[in-house]
Simulated scan of single mutants.
Amino acid sequence: MPQGRVFGGQVLAQSIMAAGRTVPDDRFIHSMHGYFLRPGDVDLPITFAVDRIHDGRSFMTRRTQAYQKGMPILSMIASFQDEDAGLDHAAPMPDVTDPDDLPSDTEILGSIDDPRARAWSADRPFEIRHASEPIYLAPPTQKSSEQMLWLRANRALPDDRRLHQAALAYASDYTLLEPILRSHGLSWLTPGLKMASLDHAMWWHRAARVDEWLLYVQQSPSATGGRGLTQGRFYSRDGKLVASVAQEGMVRVPRKS
Rank of each mutant, 00 (worst) to 15 (best):
V42D: 11
A138Q: 15
D123V: 15
F126V: 13
P99M: 03
P115R: 12
H33S: 07
A119C: 09
I46G: 00
R21Q: 13
I53V: 15
D211F: 06
T190A: 09
R152G: 05
F28M: 05
G86C: 11
M195Q: 04
L74Y: 01
L109I: 14
G34F: 00
P72W: 04
K69D: 11
R5C: 05
T97A: 15
E248C: 05
D95V: 11
S132E: 06
Q81M: 08
G110E: 07
L44F: 08
T64I: 11
A156Q: 13
D123A: 14
E107W: 03
A166C: 04
F28E: 03
S144V: 12
L151N: 01
V11Y: 02
E212R: 06
G232S: 09
M1E: 07
A207P: 09
G70K: 06
H89L: 14
R182V: 10
Q3K: 15
S104G: 13
M32I: 04
Y67Q: 05
R21G: 05
A117P: 00
R227C: 02
G9L: 02
L198G: 04
K240H: 09
S104Q: 06
A119L: 08
L193Y: 05
H184E: 13
Q142K: 15
T106I: 07
P99C: 02
V245Q: 01
K240P: 04
